[in-house]
Amino acid sequence: MPTSSSPEFEAECIRRILAGEKQLFHELIRPCERSIFFLLLSLLGNETDAEDAAQETVIKVYQNLRLFRGESQFRTWVLSIARNEGLGRLRKLRTLREDSLEADTDEVTGDYTPAILTSWREVPLQALERQELAALLREAIQKLPAIYRNVIMLRDIEEMDVRATAQALGITEGSVKVRLHRARAMLQKELAPKLKGYAPERKRSFFGWGS
């Protein structure tokens, strides 16, 4: 059996699980765990609910495994189940406010101005070892409206492509791009002035960017 989380591995795994090798489900779901949790954290806003919903999601995936047709990536299918689980819980809690997760309106506001700063070209990855920087980034993402937060979670944090993100969230690829653009712009505006202080003192280019 192929060892990575390739479509071949997934298809083979699913076939064998359905044929009775149920323990293989552990390996099938493992590469999806992180994305499931962070999508649910993005929807529900706290770790306890996100973990509980993640467990329910995984159980639903197992129970519905026969229904997976391979029309999308397995992870995308799993995330759409996670999203439904999350939305169902939100509806129950009646916390769906006007920044509705179902709404697909991406009207252009057009008056975004980025944070202007002269130079901040090095990425302070070293500084992530200090918890305060990671906390600053998490906080900025948590502050985004939910529709933007969900997209940035899947695209930039879980590094899914535009198509898979659109499928998992049930929105168009155009909406994914518009929301991603807004989300990144809001994060730049919020974070750039704060992060400048974390830039390494020694000049070095990162991936050759901006040098």
């Binding site: 944070a115 990855l125 974070l191 992060l195």
Partner: peptide, 30 residues
């Protein structure tokens, strides 16, 4: 140029696994 660099930097930073970590024991409990 500065706006582009800082936006890219933000994108690189938030993708780092140290920013969003699973809660301790999450995988074991799952």
């Amino acid at each position: 140029s500065a706006v582009l660099d800082s936006t890219r930097n933000v994108v690189v930073l938030i993708a780092d696994e140290r920013v969003f970590e699973l809660p301790a024991g999450f995988s074991k409990r799952l």
